[in-house]
Amino acid sequence: MAVQTTQTQASVLNNLDAVRAMIRRHKRNDILFAAVGLIALMIGLLTLLTLFIQLVSDGYPRFNLQFFSDFPSRRPGSAGILTAWVGSLLVMLVTFFTAVPVGVGAGVYLEEYAPKNLFSDLIEINVSNLAGVPSIIYGLLALGLFVYGLGLGQSILTAGLTLGLLILPVVIVSTREAIRGIPVAIREAAYAVGATKWQVVSDHIVKYSQGGILTGIIIGMSRAIGETAPIITIGALTFIAFLPPSPISDVAPYLNFEWLSSGFTVLPIQMFNWLSRPDHAFHINAAATGAIIIVVTLLMNGTAIYLRYKIRKNIKW
């Protein structure tokens, strides 16, 4: 036995140089892979950077106030994005008022009310499935249902509802995740003083999860602003050289809903429109529009990510 002991001990000690050389070799692979991994991750970032620089440098000549206040035109030099940004704003208004109440409501229902049975499973499966449906399919849904089925036409209302449905899964999922973070003890504390379910939900659950819910809403809205395919599909790619009627009027009741049924264009559609023209002068307009869209969406996403980071840091139940 003693002999065997010395023999086995020899395996590393007697070949120390060889073992060390091997370890060095293996560790070189570690460093090599770490470098490759970092490069792999940088590819995305570098593409984003190149893309942004490209858009900004291509669109540079159009970065002036004129560009924001001009109507589209057949002459590329005097064409602007007035109708597009106004359209985007109005469509987002509809999307917000569709997706937020429905999405948050659905999230609250699934977390706080729904019995754990086949019924809630069905809803859950649908939500996760909808998150994976390509956006263009929502466009087909809107074309068949809103434009022709319900006769809403190629209007701001149609576009807003379509994008509202599109971002619904995002809002639902983030609402649920935010609510799930609230410990049971909080609910029990509220019930213990005689609150009804709705009082618990509205006074506590929604209040304490509002940061997380807001994060989801911002991410969803930023996605909606950049969406192009579903809006093209409802047939909104037309030349729009007028503004929708103003939502605010100077006579009572001061609110006006005619704009909902108005034709419109939005920023990404305007960009696509210019991008698909052969005349390179229009591509400059497309680049400028693209840079604006990217700045807006990056700002929104950045805000959402920062918000989530803050929430994670601050809340410790």
Partner: peptide
């Protein structure tokens, strides 16, 4: 032992230690 290596020393590779 028998080589009197301090396995916690900085110069000593953790992988070499784990192989022993």
């Amino acid at each position: 032992h028998p080589d009197n290596t301090n396995i916690l020393e900085h110069g000593v590779d953790a992988i070499e230690v784990r192989m022993r």
